[in-house]
Simulated assay, not measured.
Amino acid sequence: MSTNSAAWLPEARSDVVVGPAEMPVPGPGELLVRTRAVAVNPLDDVKQWTGNLMYRWLPYPAVLGEDVAGEVAAVGPDVTRFAPGDRVVAYAVGMERGTRHRAEGGFQSFVVVREGLTAPLPDTLAFHDAVVLPLAVSTAATALFQRDHLALPHPTPAPVGGRGTVVVWGGSTSVGSNAIQLAVASGHRVVTTASPRNHERMRDLGADLVVDYRDSTAVDRLSEALRGDEVVGVLAVGTGSGAAAVALAAATGARRVALASPAVSFASLPRRGGPSVTAALTMTRLGASTALTQLTARRHGISARFVWGSALMTNEVGRMLWHDHLPRALADGTHRPAPEAEVVGEGLESIQTALDRLRAGVSAKKLVVVL
Rank of each mutant, 00 (worst) to 15 (best):
T142K: 06
V232M: 09
V168F: 15
G170C: 10
P155G: 10
D356W: 13
D229I: 08
R36M: 03
A247R: 14
G345Y: 14
A143L: 10
H199M: 08
T35V: 14
A244K: 13
L269N: 08
L295D: 13
H325C: 10
L259N: 01
G70Y: 02
M1N: 01
H335T: 09
S363H: 00
D44Y: 14
V210L: 05
E342K: 01
V89N: 09
G345H: 14
G318H: 05
S350G: 12
V112I: 12
A249T: 11
M95P: 04
A338Y: 11
P157W: 02
A21G: 09
A83V: 08
H188S: 09
Q294M: 01
K47V: 13
F145T: 07
V88L: 09
R81M: 06
I351S: 12
A83R: 13
V368M: 01
R357C: 01
R100K: 10
R189S: 05
E96Y: 12
R97A: 07
R56W: 03
G309M: 07
P275Q: 05
T124D: 13
R114W: 02
V237L: 04
R357L: 11
V362P: 00
R189N: 05
P84V: 06
E316F: 00
H323C: 10
W8Q: 10
R36T: 09
F266H: 06
D208N: 13
T139N: 07
G76V: 13
R256M: 06
P157C: 05
V33I: 10
M1G: 05
L135S: 10
A236M: 09
L295S: 14
V113H: 00
A279L: 01
R81F: 03
Q352E: 15
D86F: 11
M54C: 10
V264P: 07
L312P: 00
H300N: 11
A249W: 12
V75C: 07
A62R: 15
L321G: 02
V264T: 06
E11G: 15
K366E: 02
F82T: 02
T239G: 00
A258F: 13
S109R: 07
V211W: 04
R255T: 05
M313R: 13
V132I: 01
S216L: 08
T296I: 05
A360C: 02
G187D: 05
G51Y: 10
R221M: 05
V168P: 02
G240A: 01
L152I: 07
L312G: 00
V112A: 06
L355F: 08
D15L: 14
S276Y: 01
V344T: 12
S289L: 00
T139I: 07
D204A: 11
G318S: 07
D324E: 12
L205N: 02
R359T: 01
V75H: 06
E22I: 15
